[in-house]
Design a protein around this nucleic acid. Sequence first.
DNA 1: CTGAAAGCGCTTACAG
DNA 2: CTGAAAGCGCTTACAG
Lengths: 372, 372
Amino acid sequence: MPSSQDQTPGPVDPSRRRRPTLTDVAAMAGVSVSTVSRALDGNPRIPGETRQKVVEAATALGFRRNISARSLRTQSSMLVGVVVPDIAIAFYATVLKAAQNVLEAAGYQVVVMNTERDAQHETVALRTLQDRQVDGLLVATSGGYVPDRGPVVFFDHVIPDTGLGYVSPDNAGGMTTLVEHLAVVHGHTRIAFLGVPPGPTDRTQRMENAPATERLEAFRNVMGARRLPVPPEYLAYGDHEWTEASAQQAIAELMRVAEPPTAVIAAGDTLALGALRQLRADQYKVGTDIALVSFDDPVSSDLLDPPMTALRRHDRELGEISARMLLDALEGRKSGVAPKTEHPTETRVPLDLIVRRSCGCAPETPESEPPP
Amino acid sequence: MPSSQDQTPGPVDPSRRRRPTLTDVAAMAGVSVSTVSRALDGNPRIPGETRQKVVEAATALGFRRNISARSLRTQSSMLVGVVVPDIAIAFYATVLKAAQNVLEAAGYQVVVMNTERDAQHETVALRTLQDRQVDGLLVATSGGYVPDRGPVVFFDHVIPDTGLGYVSPDNAGGMTTLVEHLAVVHGHTRIAFLGVPPGPTDRTQRMENAPATERLEAFRNVMGARRLPVPPEYLAYGDHEWTEASAQQAIAELMRVAEPPTAVIAAGDTLALGALRQLRADQYKVGTDIALVSFDDPVSSDLLDPPMTALRRHDRELGEISARMLLDALEGRKSGVAPKTEHPTETRVPLDLIVRRSCGCAPETPESEPPP
DNA sequence: CTGAAAGCGCTTACAG
DNA sequence: CTGAAAGCGCTTACAG
């Protein structure tokens, strides 16, 4: 049994001193480790007096429980893994933060992994998280998801029939809003779509239900329903990483077709930003010569030239919903509720159209929009 | 000894099956757990044949080591804690991502905590991280840092004489660049500073070396050195959270003073964005009526109206440097190198001036800037 | 109300 | 080259 005898005598660098353990506290309080553990738990079987002694000793020693040890014993790590394509993207960062808030309030900590939009990266990240014994997973997949034990909820990307469910933006509804604004309010008929290549890459599989694909499908459906043609040359694609640069190139080509569109819908904010940059470089007056709207709301979009009409996602809400869905399963499991074998829950978060100028509208109260 | 007898017979939900352990692999391979552990480590004492058997068994069972158990035993969690004020802010997200890249390459995982810019939150977060036995810490403090065991490096905020060191943007150099551009290139003499209140809040202590304070000091110094006056009314402050809204209010007031400035330096990107919004709302032509420059480069700043002249931080580099500094200590410690008691290392990352239009310049190649 | 003991899944001297 | 055993720091039935 290690005691202070092991300790080199004399002044010790405090930062290197061994952390006190339950055993240390027990010794100091003159009780057993079981009692310390229970007292610290607030177990009602321990009378106030004993608890008092224990708490004093613990405080005096600066004792803090070792969570690894506890989780080894309890088989619960109180860790939730979050995997995202790229934490530096505002959407993922916001979702993470929101999810983290609700998870931490319930006593869980979060470990994040970036996949860099690479399926293999993602598979490795998932494995690492499992090795850490995470209790649950929140994932925005890049196609590398492999099922394992433990509850998982997807956000952003839809994976049918897997995990507890998913919560995603209402891609279809959003696209409808966008097309209708362009077609009904502004009377456009030549509307192009700027997206990301559908179908898998070598690095990415199973993207059938990716946001990009859903948005493209929705675009086709709404256009069809409105009896508006979708010529193939009106389908422009950036790259799989949604880079601004790829959007610039795609839209430059798009505008060179025989009969160029009068309006374009960008399937994401980075795409919209790239399009805007290129259009401006090519001397188009966006909002006048050509309408441009964005599926996601870029940061500071009211300060852009021109201010961008866009769909605002409720990122925070999406994060909270996802986390809560996971939490429910976690708590349910803890209290012995049978693991649900019902269908995964599907939640769609609606999007709001923010009308600014790039669509051709002139907002009522120009320039005075409050900050996001 | 637990065996398959414990298992309820019949079909078992695979997601609920117990993860295989070393003992399982040992049983299957017909060797001891010690041998399995060593074989999996690639220990040279284990001959290829034995290793082969072990690896096969492990693969067949889908065995993965339990990291909690290992870290309990080895007293090393291979976990690095990162604490930031707000992960949804681009700077912190980018730094995190960069740091994570180098840390993961070395086998560490990262657990992030948001402090919401609250000192108490931060103290709790730090404690939680210690409870998780993190091997090291990367922190952008909000004033709630309390020293504990384990190596720590600060980024963003400077904390002298603590931890391994810090890596921060070159606030003084950056401010010099900004003032000189305004004063020398454009001949401004009435230059105002839009920052964040210096000194502590109730929720925040020890902010003497906060970025905001360093930038203000630098501003005063450079102005003084150039014999330019700094009247008190030219010092405008948003709030401690650097919100755009607070900047809007502050600059509105600033422009109402008897002799308003002809140029303003915003100490951060959100502040600059708020200022731009307000200035535009008040019908100023930014870049013509008044010059506005930003200490940090806002996202899409080339697409703003007008494009914003700003200092570009090398966020990724900053993250990598910080992580590497921590890693060096971690590796050193592991190989038994004495904990360094020398002075903390100070690293300053330089900033580049990106000249756009808001300062009054007309860039040579208008509108064709490549994406960030 | 309290304690002794087992055990979570590993690693690693120590002995053979 | 291999194994038995101790032990990392906890929690929790079990017994008193």
